[in-house]
C-alpha cells in the first residue's frame, strides 16, 4: 500500500470516514441496477447512488488518491459505519437503511455546512442531495408501512433488523466539529415521527452490539463487508499500476 492510502491527521480521517460511508452505500445501491421493483424506481435508486458516489469521490480526494483509497485499502482501513455495508435485503431493508442513514447524513452535513473548510463547501452542496434522499426514504417508509399487511410486516422487520447499527451514527468522529447529542435527538425525533406516521412501531432494542472491539469507525466491520470489498476491488487489484 502506498503512502497515499495511509492518511492521518484528524481532518483527513474525518473526510475518509464520511467518504467511506458514501462510497460503500453507493456500492450497495448500485447492486439494485436491473433488480428494482419498478422502472421508475431503477432511475430513483441510481440517482441516489450517483449522488453518493460523487460525494465519495470529493471526500476521498481530500484524503489522497480516490482510486488508491477505494481499491487498495484492506478491510480494517475502511472507516464507514457498519450500517451502510449491510446487504440490500428486500426493498424494505434498503429503504430502512436509507431512512436511517440519509436522515443522519442530512443532519450531519447540515451542521458541517456551517463549519470550516474544506468540509463545509462539500457539505453545503451534499446536504441538498441528502434531503432528497431522506424524502425518498420517507415516502417509501410511509407507503410500505401503511400499504398492505405484507409490506407493513416487511418494513417493520427491516426497521428492527437494522436498528442495532444506528447507535454508531452518533459516536463522535475525531476532526468533526458536530453537536452529536443534538444530532442524535433530532435524528430520533425525525425517524420516530415518520415511522409512527407510517403506522409502524419505532424499534426499541439496543442500538449497538455489545462488543469491545468497536465498530466501523474503528475499522471493525461485519461479515458481508469482506465480500463487498472482494468484489469491488478484485479487478483493480488484478492489474497493479494499470490506468483505466
Amino acid at each position: 500500500m502506498s503512502t497515499a492510502a495511509r492518511p492521518d491527521g484528524p481532518g483527513t480521517m474525518a473526510a475518509l470516514a464520511l467518504g467511506d460511508d458514501a462510497l460503500i452505500l453507493a456500492q450497495r445501491l448500485g447492486e439494485w441496477a436491473g433488480h428494482a421493483p419498478e422502472l421508475e424506481e431503477e432511475v430513483a435508486l441510481a440517482n441516489i447512488a450517483l449522488d453518493l458516489l460523487g460525494q465519495a469521490r470529493t471526500l476521498l480526494t481530500l484524503s489522497g488518491d480516490e482510486d488508491e483509497l477505494a481499491f487498495r485499502r484492506e478491510e480494517r482501513d475502511f472507516r464507514n459505519v457498519q450500517l451502510v455495508e449491510q446487504p440490500n435485503g428486500d426493498f424494505a431493508h434498503t429503504i430502512a437503511r436509507q431512512l436511517y442513514f440519509s436522515t443522519y447524513q442530512e443532519l450531519l452535513y447540515g451542521q458541517l455546512a456551517g463549519g470550516t473548510e474544506p468540509l463545509s463547501a462539500l457539505a453545503a452542496k451534499a446536504v441538498k442531495e441528502c434531503a432528497y434522499h431522506r424524502d425518498h426514504a420517507e415516502q417509501w417508509t410511509l407507503r410500505l408501512g401503511d400499504g398492505t399487511e405484507e409490506s407493513h410486516r416487511r418494513m417493520q422487520t427491516a426497521l428492527d433488523a437494522l436498528w442495532r447499527y444506528t447507535g454508531e451514527l452518533f459516536r463522535p468522529v475525531e476532526g468533526l466539529d458536530v453537536a452529536w447529542d443534538t444530532l442524535e435527538d433530532t435524528w430520533r425525533a425525525s425517524v420516530t415521527g415518520i415511522v409512527t406516521q407510517a403506522t409502524l412501531t419505532p424499534p426499541e432494542g439496543p442500538q449497538a452490539a455489545p462488543w469491545a472491539a468497536g465498530a466501523g469507525r474503528q475499522g471493525v466491520h461485519t461479515e458481508p463487508f469482506g465480500r463487498l470489498l472482494a468484489e469491488m476491488q478484485h479487478l483493480h487489484r488484478s492489474h497493479p499500476g494499470a490506468s483505466w
Binding site: 462510497l23 453507493a26 456500492q27 448500485g30 447492486e31 441496477a33 436491473g34 428494482a36 422502472l39 431503477e42 432511475v43 441510481a46 440517482n47 447512488a49 450517483l50 458516489l53 460523487g54 465519495a56 469521490r57 476521498l60 480516490e66 482510486d67 477505494a70 481499491f71 468484489e231 469491488m232 478484485h234 479487478l235 483493480h236 492489474h239 494499470a242 483505466w244
Partner: peptide, 21 residues
C-alpha cells in the same frame, strides 16, 4: 457496476445503465 476498476468508470457505467432504464 460493482467491479468497475475506477470510481470515475463506476459513475459513468451507473449513469449509463440508469439511462437505459
Amino acid at each position: 457496476i460493482s467491479r468497475a476498476p475506477s470510481l470515475r468508470r463506476k459513475a459513468i457505467l451507473l449513469a449509463k445503465v440508469q439511462d437505459e432504464a
